[in-house]
Amino acid sequence: MQQLTKTVASGKSTLTILHDLSLSVAHGASLAIVGSSGSGKSTLLGLLAGLDVASSGEIYLAGNALSGLSEDGRALLRAKTAGFVFQSFQLLPDLTALENVMLPLELSDRVDARHLAEQWLTKVGLSERMQHTPRQLSGGEQQRVALARAFAPGPAILFADEPTGSLDSATGLVIADLLFTLNREAGTTLVLVTHDETLAARCQSQLRLAAGRVVSQQGLAA
């Protein structure tokens, strides 16, 4: 991303959430975006993933400039390149674990959706729970399903928003291990938002934000 700025209208004045940020993440690398609440980390993640548009500056996702793309163009790009893991899991409550994992695969018209989903659920240790709905699963299990769902389509880049934020420390550790293992095996680029310093430390590089500005960065080429 280059000279990224995000402003929002707040009454009559304009509020700048992100100030002139520039960085690049190499293919297969991992980046942690850290900072306190309100520092702009989630906004940055949303911009990087093309969920939102920057006020100025440019973002290249897997080599594609996002500013030239429409909402649907960005959606298609996400379908091809990006995977997501959220703090609150974001599983569809009425669908089974298997169906939740199949969902993005079906959206990409993958004919082997069911087979792939089963493979990934087995990989995250849920081969026995495929037909269970989120309500019947613990928080850790739900996040495993979310991981399987994120990795199953084989994304080039994975965006994770506080992936362990809703879990107890022991379960969080297990999920983090699983996330990094799968990421390594799949060779996926990882962009992770967290306020957990231990989790951030496991990434190859870290970007620290405060009030929308970069206060420090490690392992990153500016």
Partner: peptide, 12 residues
Amino acid sequence: ALLRTFGATRRQ
């Protein structure tokens, strides 16, 4: 929102 995050277009 989730479907759109996964890359579903508005038309889809």
